[in-house]
Amino acid sequence: MIVKLTLNHQEKRFDVDASETLLETLRNHDVMSVKKGCDASSCGTCTVLVDGKPMLSCSLLTVRLQNKHIITVDGIHDEVEKISTYFGLEGADQCGFCNPGMALSIYALKQMLSNPSSEDIKTFLVGNLCRCSGYQAQFKAIKRYLGDPL
């Protein structure tokens, strides 16, 4: 089946199986920033933005995404660069497997909530699991990023 969508600001046509997930489509087309950490929509490593909203690409069928706009970290390099700078400064990087997904959620958080409290931030990110960091350094980095003007 042919699906037309926008991926990182570029029009794309994908020929996919009806059962193919967006995660599979992206990785099959060399978008390696989206990671597969589970099979049950429960880890957040496969997060992408669909029309601006963070969603789990492992739970989306590509055929359903006709005309949607998909963003991965590759499509918002400047913002991810900023986020990663703060992660670096706070020592929040460890294995990094959660980081691209986390970065997209953080970016979306900044777009969607103004002046979020610590609890708001934690609640927003509850679906992005990280087994390495203990989260604290990540929160510090996120707060610094949110403090930057949009």
């Binding site: 390696m32 991965t72 970290v73 670096g88 929040a92 980081n99």
Partner: peptide, 9 residues
């Protein structure tokens, strides 16, 4: 390498 990873390489 934190930056490169987060940038999706």
């Amino acid at each position: 390498d934190g930056k490169g990873i987060m940038m999706g390489h």
